[in-house]
Nucleic acid binder design. Sequence first.
DNA 1: TAAAAAATTTAGGCGACCCAAAGTTTACCG
DNA 2: CGGTAAACTTTGGGTCGCCTAAATTTTTTA
Lengths: 254, 254
Amino acid sequence: MTPVDELSASMEDYLEAIYHIVTAKQAARAKDIAKRLDVNNSSVTGALRTLSEKGFINYAPYDVITLTPKGHKHAEDVVRRHEALMDFFTKVLCVDRTEASEAACKMEHAVSRNILDRLIRFVEFIEICPRGGETLIQGFNNHCRQEGNFITCQDSLARCLEDLKQRQKDIEGDLLETAPLNDLRQDQRGKILKIKGKGGISKKLAELEVTPGSIVEVIQTDTETGALDIKVRGYRLSLSTEEAAKILVERSGN
Amino acid sequence: MTPVDELSASMEDYLEAIYHIVTAKQAARAKDIAKRLDVNNSSVTGALRTLSEKGFINYAPYDVITLTPKGHKHAEDVVRRHEALMDFFTKVLCVDRTEASEAACKMEHAVSRNILDRLIRFVEFIEICPRGGETLIQGFNNHCRQEGNFITCQDSLARCLEDLKQRQKDIEGDLLETAPLNDLRQDQRGKILKIKGKGGISKKLAELEVTPGSIVEVIQTDTETGALDIKVRGYRLSLSTEEAAKILVERSGN
DNA sequence: TAAAAAATTTAGGCGACCCAAAGTTTACCG
DNA sequence: CGGTAAACTTTGGGTCGCCTAAATTTTTTA
Ligand SMILES: [Mn+2]
Ligand SMILES: [Mn+2]
Ligand SMILES: [Mn+2]
Ligand SMILES: [Mn+2]
């Protein structure tokens, strides 16, 4: 049998499914899982027993299913891999979401820690680098489609220069500003300049290798409490206003 | 049982191993395969039977193993996937070769046709695009390593502009020239400008979706016959001098 | 509250892998 | 030619993931 802390690809998919169902509703039932993964009910029971034996889920026959802390953590990791691959496929390679998600769900079990990390950083970099961004992706798309009426290196270079100069103008007009993270609104992004303090959130971010230069995206804001859901380096985090205030970012011009 | 034309991940690995062994020596023996894949001899026998039944290899008990045309074709496809992922990991993500190869060999079985295609084109694009290339990758590496002394968007953009201008100068001095593919030497690359003729090589390239704009790399040249081994869109091809002469490329400044 | 319906589990089976140990075949040498 | 070592195959046994059919439990409904 596989070691108690490890999961086969199939078991990871079950765990992932449970995670999504538990997030949407309160708890998962075997039937939901079977439907989501398109497998037979009895297959689910078998998987549940395995996951339960290994301590990933709370499960008793006929009872409702929830994740243990260990299971939750592992599920989040699977989801992170899934989303990271998905982001790369959709944002960089311009593959449509359905196909990207299917491929991601197969590949997520085979990607190594380190390569995943580089991939996340690469997408981040392409999105934020002045020579990357939208226009690079556009250029890539043209490159893919070009049939005859392509451009020479020289022309291509000239165009790139044009493009960057234009962007410089845009940015100068826009005057990028520095702001605490809690000033950002939903869907805005920023580049981390500084993380104040030593313990608490600062430590946590350091553990995740979130450093100045990393890109943060605000996923959601709670208008009442001011709490933020952010995504950084592939991780989804929730921050209180106080915590967010400690993070200084340069607003991304977008 | 899986359909007769399809192979499981495991069987693909066996096929891949056989391909490499057959390429190196004349034919493969069960023992070589077992050693290469680090599995038990008896597992190899089982795999050989399966591959033989499905028509991928020529195999008789106690005899030497070779690939059928069908097997050769499928093996080349597996290798193409392996190399494409490997290229992306090493050239773009800067992962070291050993790790890249391991990861590629796991992921190669999960990557979809379309995504593989986009990936190959992306690597090609990054290598050839003026705003991509070496300096972009360097920028990416800096982005990964930066701890505190990172750059703001504005500075970053200025640097990029500098870099592109410099490159423009380099290119102007170098004056890129147009040449038939057979003029390129080993390890040189070029961007396809035009493919002359209708049938033969032209048709074959069209089938592989090799079009003007695609990047060709010369892997090896035969000084006697002038034949070329090239790599284009992830495919390895052998061309005679006459065939190569029909392909007009713009020399890559590298 | 008892029967019907729905959900879940159990039992049994299959295919794809893999391994250890035991048995065969082959190649080669004195 | 016989003996032997190396290479190879077969046998038997185990895991994993999935399925169907049948049994069991829970929930709904009349
Ligand atoms: Mn998956
Ligand atoms: Mn997934
Ligand atoms: Mn492989
Ligand atoms: Mn491989």
